[in-house]
Design a protein around this nucleic acid. Structure first.
Lengths: 228, 228
DNA sequence: GACAAAAGATGTTTTTTAACACAAAAATAC
DNA sequence: GTATTTTTGTGTTAAAAAACATCTTTTGTC
């Protein structure tokens, strides 16, 4: 895929650039692919680029106590990420890795900062992204801390549906996560994720085929998620 | 206190205004005081104003399952809040209330939006605030979900020190929270907050005098917080 | 295709924490 | 100043979830 085409997939940026800026971005933009489970950045790294997921799926996570990780966000194409730490002049407090083979464009933050200073619209775009992410993060904190295992897993399944959608049949999740990732998404041990998924399948709330999850009774899942 | 003086306490805003804008902000700004525990906004409310805490202390929290609340952020003077939901065109997903008697200035978001569109610096300021808050929120999610009670409470105490500081003696927290608020800050039941605070006092990590908390052994608290 | 390694499944035990119950102290109202 | 409500404190019980232990299945490698 040509850089030109990649930039064309990022209209929020592309549309506000002058011809000179456009050329500069094309010049400085890098595009590379990541293999499944390949790390994109690590906690503590210095952020230097705005990243944009062109294709694939990415998890943003944080390693906690005892080697357990917590997935805090997931990205789908076309979404920007990796800029939060740069905006606040911090090193990354999270890590990112590809769930599945992914293509990611990166543009130096120095350049982005200049563009933002010249383009209130672009500033507004990133402010909106940050504001949305913060609201989600706050909601997620409460969901993950106060709900019981069944509620958290139901929430996790619905979160995946919302984030990645379902395939043509209208109920099979587009994302295929390992049981460990399901656990890290829903704040529980891998054993409990496996067990509770089985229980949900027995209760005909979902059906399982390896890592494929089909939602059979969404209202019931929502109820379980809601009441905790 | 005159509106003029209040605006003077908000340099990020004041310094970037033209004389006309300055007058307009003064015109539209409201200043009011809130009593202890008085609600400032509620979950589901439509955000219409940028708020700035001029004096006092405020908690941002979310009501979860079973009437249990979770404090997600706390504000100290001089800090802006209440703008996240407005930036993302959502209703509030959190509620805010005063910990103690507080004075709050509010400026219509419509006006703020116009100012931001004309002032990249102002846009950058709010982007930074949002980026910092998001990083904290992500860290908090993991802290609250993965640590055990002792770790969470130690974390909560250190969080209060960082947010509100200590008084002249260098170790007594400036914030006096009820045991219930301590529990809501640290994601545990009120009983467990009371019990664990007592244990910490017995272990000479802190000393208690009603709601006053004095930190006696900060390195030990940090260790407990870190290891979970 | 054989082997090793990783992922998934399931039952049992132990730890953690919430829930409950009640008493004492403090704050507030009258 | 007494009564009432709220907050704080403490012990006990029950529920939830982690930890642990195996075993099976799948995946990947040579």
């Amino acid at each position: 895929m040509k850089k030109e085409d990649v930039l064309g997939m990022m209209p929020e940026l592309d549309n506000v650039l002058t011809p000179q800026e456009h050329d500069q971005v094309l010049e400085e933009m890098q595009v590379r692919s990541y293999r499944k489970n390949e790390p994109i950045y690590r906690e503590g790294d210095k952020p230097s680029h705005l990243l944009c997921l062109i294709s694939g799926k990415v998890k943003i996570y944080k390693d906690g106590v005892g080697g357990r990780a917590q997935i805090v966000r997931v990205m789908n194409a076309i979404e920007y990420f990796g800029y939060r730490a740069a905006f606040s002049d911090e090193n990354y407090v999270t890590a990112a890795a590809a769930f599945e083979p992914s293509i990611i464009a990166s543009i130096p933050m120095d350049l982005i900062r200049q563009l933002i200073m010249r383009n209130p619209q672009l500033a507004w775009f990133f402010m909106r992204r940050l504001a949305i992410a913060l609201g989600r993060s706050d909601a997620r904190t409460v969901n993950l801390t106060q709900k019981h295992i069944r509620g958290r897993l139901a929430e996790g399944i619905l979160f995946l549906k919302e984030s990645y959608g379902v395939n043509e049949d209208g109920c099979t999740l587009n994302a295929c996560l390992s049981r460990e990732d399901m656990a890290n998404l829903s704040n529980m041990t891998t054993s409990n994720a496996i067990r509770t998924l089985s229980v949900f399948a027995q209760e005909k709330l979902i059906s399982l085929d390896g890592r494929k999850i089909k939602i059979l009774n969404e209202p019931a899942l929502q109820k379980i998620s809601k009441k905790g």
